[in-house]
Design a binder for these strands. Sequence first.
DNA 1: AGTTTTTACTTGACTGAGCAAGTAAAAATT
DNA 2: AATTTTTACTTGCTCAGTCAAGTAAAAACT
Lengths: 169, 169
Amino acid sequence: MSDSSDPNRLTGDDLATWAALATVLEWLPPALDAPLIRSFDLTHFEYGILFALADAPDRALRMTVLADYANSSLSRLSRAVSRIEGRGWVQRTRDPVDGRSTLTTLTDAGLKMLDTATPVQALSVKELVLDPLTSAQRGQLGEISRRIQRAIRKQEGWQPPQPSASDND
Amino acid sequence: MSDSSDPNRLTGDDLATWAALATVLEWLPPALDAPLIRSFDLTHFEYGILFALADAPDRALRMTVLADYANSSLSRLSRAVSRIEGRGWVQRTRDPVDGRSTLTTLTDAGLKMLDTATPVQALSVKELVLDPLTSAQRGQLGEISRRIQRAIRKQEGWQPPQPSASDND
DNA sequence: AGTTTTTACTTGACTGAGCAAGTAAAAATT
DNA sequence: AATTTTTACTTGCTCAGTCAAGTAAAAACT
């Protein structure tokens, strides 16, 4: 009997769980980024942009859609795309159909970068997240993550971006 | 039946699990910070400093120890302490025993802030993390987090805070 | 058709964090 | 005792990310 006795603060098992999670929240992102940064000076976020574009038709997406896939604000994405555009991995063009939109296209060099980076990225996710867990825990982690996601969307005034098309990472 | 077939990229359930976790890693920290920032212009990180100090003898800790509790680099901690010192919640003094060290002490105002902020903090952790999970999942989340932590410490050249003492050649 | 509103970004100002260089005090070495 | 090394921070520089303001094109309205 150590849980949720006092509603005003975390105690017992709840506190321990939260402390463990908080440490992961702090350390996991930089730990995952490190190999990609060392090897290619590429962040996981920038990798995610290349990854999303590679699966898109014509390897191109509008910024808003890409921002949604990358869990990103438009402004953050805009700057990140500027960075990797400067390195020749994507290219921006004005959408001929809608002049307000920017189409970001993965270049051949970008695709090559993605293919090179993918095994490195996969390896660190496996080493740091997947392999240390049992198969059951991997399943639980997915379910737990989805529940937390739902709670976040519920709490903040959340609006589904476009309930029409696909959803994926 | 879709796991770990290709060692060079994530597929199937592994990809789905990772995608779900990546979204949480991106969204949970700002979602947890939001209520504290709105209410008191206090980040979770700054809250953590106050929290750690409150439990320390004399409500004081040396920067290095505090950095360890807060999962923080010394430089990040130094700036954060400067911020909350400017708001009167902590105070820095030189350690009389070791002149290199800085003792950071929680002030009465800081303790009051902590007590005010704690229920807000506890509520958001409960709403976003604990309540959406089953009791079994809460337990699993703790265990999963600890396993990931261990993997991170193993991979990076990790040095325990105090590599015991005498080991010279 | 002309004006207003909305959409889709982009960018300037600002803040927080990392890295590396600096400072000062204690410990170790000569 | 004097010098070197280590420890414990602090700070300047730079950069990524946020928020708000700006820009330009399409949609809606009159």
